[in-house]
Design a protein around this nucleic acid. Structure first.
Length: 876
RNA sequence: GGGCGCUUAGCUCAGCGGAAGAGCACUCGGUUUACACCCGAGCGGUCACUGGUUCGAAUCCAGUAGCGCCCACCA
């Protein structure tokens, strides 16, 4: 009701927070301000980060947006710390995503990509590329990205090819890449080999069929073998038994009849066979089972391949030829049954079967000529780089998983029979007797033809940390930003990608001997839905981050991701969480608006000796800055978000802003000015701390608050503990205790929060505390007709007498006090029990004993206080 | 078969040796001159189970039971 004489301070902040407008208005022009260009001649500390691949299924999915947010936060903070930052993006993985899209499109059209041919396929990929690259740019930008997402940085295919070829030739020349016929994981759907890492083992219900080999009718020797893949018997070339197995001693070295084929196969002795398992006799199919392959090699057995690249039976000379493997499994079994050779069947038989990770069907072990990387020395060096601390893994617990991989890596099959990717740079002479590996720019002799196979995705991805910076050339980027500062990625990709990057990078020794790809590998977990399930499109619980960005704003979406950033741990994410983040954004908006409407400023000196709430919040601010820094060191994004959320909401908004009103609306102009300055300071620092997690909103608010150019390049806050005033915290705690206690009383008494109540306040409260308490509780000065109808005393001994203009609700008050008494009684019992324990007194640290003593005393006085209040209540 | 991890309020999770916490949900009250995407007050838990170590255990150790993830060539 007071008319202000001074003109009210104004702000251009609209009353309503609208994320769309904030984001649209702000991004424009960022690039032109030159914040994002790296300067190779700068003497600032470099900070670089490698961007993991976009999801192969196309677009920007939730997990990628999540990861992107964490990385962007690190980069933004580094830049505010004055470091020179660089993201290391590249086109290669975007290409892969496009390839996948084209494949999908062809499948939908019903076009056979084999019929289309490689050249036409690549042509189509290129048609897509511009559009798709643009899509990625748009999505990245909407995330509030701090990268120079120019098309140049996305057009690195040439460079990648050069890097890939250079690395291949180097390993080839060193004898670390070789071609060999091995038993590999074969995908009949993809018609390609897969690496061990691309195979998922899943429990399936199959069958275990026991078959009699040899004489079917007891007219001669026979033995029984069991298998889950009956059809492979067509490719058997032996039966193996353990050398010491007496049951079969007489048969070793003899031949038995292999049913259905008319062939005879030897019975051999091999130590690999477990005599305790099954019958102790094993059928041996060297070309279609890894164990059998090993046995076959040891015994020099023939290794006939009986399946083609699509999983059809072939070249057995039986009428099963041409059948699909699963069809043949039934047909062969039934034929054997007709011949009386099935002696036992277990169905369902639960066993583990490898499946293609991408195409989902069971993989078929198959003998095949492929290219391999001998990983032994590479993997050992990659392990050493972590063991000796050159590369840190965060959280440290996950280093065990890393070691589990590098220490037990099999040779890596790098050739693929896919239609896209970098081709193996090896050429064969026309007669096929000679081969040559060529480096970039080298021409093969006329008439020589290049190997048809392409390289595994992870071969080129493994070069990422340095190929993106221009390797094999000695570039300025490479010298300045390699090794990269940190790699942020999910733990699920540790063995796929991280291990490959480590092996190649350590081996390449970019810049100098012993160099590594990154200083730290920061691993985050997977985003899951509320039920803890993995997000996936097929399950229908997947979320497009763009939908959230549209509905709640990019800042709310990003803050939500930050809240999920637990090192190495999965986190559930849900629409409710984004909603709560959006509320937080709105809260910050309104708080800043309030501050500006009340003349908050960042101009002029901050009061050197603030008082009351100003002193308290200034001290708290220093602690928060220090805590945020500590948490960043461990990549504890979720805790950073949580800390800032609660500090901003529970302390700054709920208490400081309310307390600030005491001085802002008071008569003391000097105090009001001091508060305006502290208010400006608190929001300034808070917005800077929040900027990495919500760039748009903080930019808009910070510019409005400070009138300066951009929070993007504002200095990162520094904690200054000389600004923590002794006693300030206690002073405000005193206010909070009284206010909370009286609010509780008022609520129980059914008093509206807005109702003004005449009251007398007595007890150990300073002037400032008195005023604060009166203001927050809407207590008015007692008038001439003041009648005490209610009184309460707080634990600290503050007495408040109120005139409610009516009798109090005795029952409600008794209930309240009874509850207090129960709590105090329990507290007293616990404390007394401890203090009555001789052993506790003798052995517990003095600090703890003193703490318990203080608790006992507090409980005793609380009990006395509540008891007195209870007995003062009218009976009934 | 081998690792690793988890089990705390209805739900999702923090806490990881010295007074049981948060968000959401729920109940009650509220047009308090920033904010109903809000404010105030409240309800709600033998911290999976059983032993052990300790003056003291949600927290450390062992075992049990469920659940999850990763790895693995047992026919």
């Amino acid at each position: 009701g007071v008319t202000t004489t001074d003109p009210a301070p104004t702000t251009t902040l609209p009353a309503q927070y609208s994320p769309g407008e904030v984001e649209a208005g702000l991004y424009e022009g960022w690039e032109s301000r030159g914040y994002f260009t790296a300067d190779a001649a700068s003497d600032r500390e470099p900070f670089s980060i490698v961007i993991p691949p976009p999801n192969v299924t196309g677009g920007l999915h939730l997990g990628h947006a999540f990861e992107h947010t964490l990385m962007d936060a690190l980069v933004r903070r580094a830049r505010m710390q004055g470091k020179e930052t660089l993201w290391v993006p590249g086109m290669d993985h975007a290409s892969i995503a496009v390839h996948a899209l084209v494949e999908k499109e062809l499948a939908e059209e019903g076009t056979d990509r084999r019929a289309l041919g490689r050249e036409a396929f690549i042509e189509r990929v290129w048609q897509w590329k511009a559009a798709y690259g643009g899509q990625i740019l748009d999505q990245m930008r909407r995330l509030g990205d701090s990268v120079d997402w120019t098309r140049e940085r996305f057009t690195l295919d040439e460079g990648f090819s050069r890097a890939v070829q250079t690395m291949f030739k180097r390993l080839y020349d060193e004898g670390l890449i070789y071609r060999a016929e091995r038993l590999v994981n074969w995908s009949p759907v993809l018609r390609s080999v897969l690496s061990d890492a691309e195979v998922d083992h899943r429990e399936v219900e199959g069958e275990l069929v026991s078959i009699r080999y040899g004489a079917a009718d007891g007219s001669g020797p026979s033995l029984i073998v069991a298998t889950t893949r009956v059809e492979t018997m067509l490719g058997d070339t032996a039966v193996a038994v353990h050398p010491d197995d007496e049951r079969y001693a007489a048969l070793i070295g003899t031949d038995v009849e292999l049913p259905l084929t008319g062939r005879r196969i030897p019975v051999i002795a091999d130590g690999h066979v477990d005599p305790q398992f099954g019958t102790g006799a094993v059928k041996v199919t060297p070309a279609h089972d890894p164990n059998d392959f090993a046995i076959g090699q040891r015994h020099g057995l023939p290794m006939p391949t009986i399946m083609d690249d699509e999983g059809r039976i072939t070249a057995t000379g039986t009428d099963f030829d041409g059948m699909d493997r699963f069809e043949a499994r039934v047909a062969v079994r039934e034929r054997l049954r007709e011949q009386g050779r099935i002696v036992a069947e277990q169905r369902p038989y639960l066993h583990s079967v490898g499946h293609s990770e991408r195409s989902k069907e069971p993989i078929e072990p198959r003998l095949s000529l492929q290219w391999f990387v001998a990983v032994d020395t590479l993997a050992r060096a990659a392990g050493t780089a972590v063991r000796d601390g050159r590369v840190a893994i965060s959280p440290p617990e996950l280093a065990a998983r890393y070691f589990a991989w590098v220490d037990h890596l099999h040779d890596w099959c790098i050739s693929r029979q896919l239609w896209w990717g970098h081709r193996i740079p090896v050429w064969y002479s026309p007669d096929g007797t000679e081969q040559i590996c060529l480096g970039p720019g080298e021409e093969p002799p006329a008439g020589w033809r290049q190997d048809e196979d392409v390289l595994d995705t992870w071969f080129s991805a493994g070069l990422w940390p340095f190929s993106t910076l221009g390797w094999p050339d000695d570039t300025a980027d490479l010298r300045r930003f390699y090794p990269t500062t940190v790699l942020v990625t999910g733990y699920d990709i540790l063995f796929f990608w991280v291990v490959r990057m480590m092996m190649f990078s350590v081996h390449a020794e970019v810049n100098e001997p012993g160099s590594v790809p990154f200083g730290t590998v920061a691993l985050h977990g997977m985003l899951r839905d509320k039920q803890g399930r993995k997000m996936s499109k097929s399950r229908g619980n997947g979320v497009d981050p763009l939908d959230w960005m549209d509905a709640y704003g990019t800042d709310a979406t990003r803050f939500t991701f930050a809240r999920c950033g637990n090192p190495g741990a999965d986190a559930p994410v849900s629409e409710e969480l984004v909603q709560s983040s959006r509320s937080f954004c709105t809260k910050l908006w309104n708080a800043t608006r309030f501050a500006l409407l009340n003349g908050a400023t960042t101009d002029g000196e901050v009061p050197s000796i603030p008082t009351g709430a100003d002193a308290w919040i200034t001290g708290r601010l220093q602690q928060v800055v220090a805590d945020v820094d500590r948490l960043y060191a461990d990549f504890e994004f979720a805790k950073i978000a949580d800390l800032l959320y609660h500090f901003a909401w529970d302390e700054v908004c709920d208490w400081y802003l309310e307390l600030a009103k005491v001085t802002l609306t008071g008569d003391d102009e000097g105090a009001a000015d001091a508060t305006r300055r502290v208010l400006g300071e608190v929001l300034d620092v808070l917005l800077r701390l929040l900027h990495p997690l919500m760039p748009f909103l903080t930019e808009r608010l910070w510019i409005e608050l400070t009138g300066r150019e951009s929070v993007v390049v504002a200095a990162w806050p520094q904690a200054d503990f000389t600004r923590v005033a002794a006693g300030a915290e206690r002073e405000i705690a005193g206010v909070r205790d009284v206010v909370t206690e009286v609010r509780r009383f008022r609520s129980d008494q059914g008093l509206k929060p807005s109702q003004r109540v005449p009251a007398r306040v007595d007890g150990p409260l300073g002037d400032y505390q008195q005023r604060a308490v009166r203001h927050l509780l809407r207590l008015t000065e007692p008038g001439p007709d003041f009648t005490v109808t209610a009184a309460l005393t707080t634990a600290a001994g503050v007495r408040i007498e109120l005139d409610l203009s009516r009798a109090i609700d005795v029952a409600a008050e008794r209930a309240r006090l009874t509850k207090d008494r129960a709590a105090a009684t329990k507290e007293l019992e616990q404390a007394a029990a401890k203090l009555g324990n001789e052993a506790f007194l003798a052995k517990a640290p003095e600090k703890v004993v003193l703490g318990i003593r203080a608790r006992r005393e507090a409980a005793e006085s609380e009990l006395a206080r509540v008891g007195a209040a209870l007995s003062a209540l009218p009976v009934g």
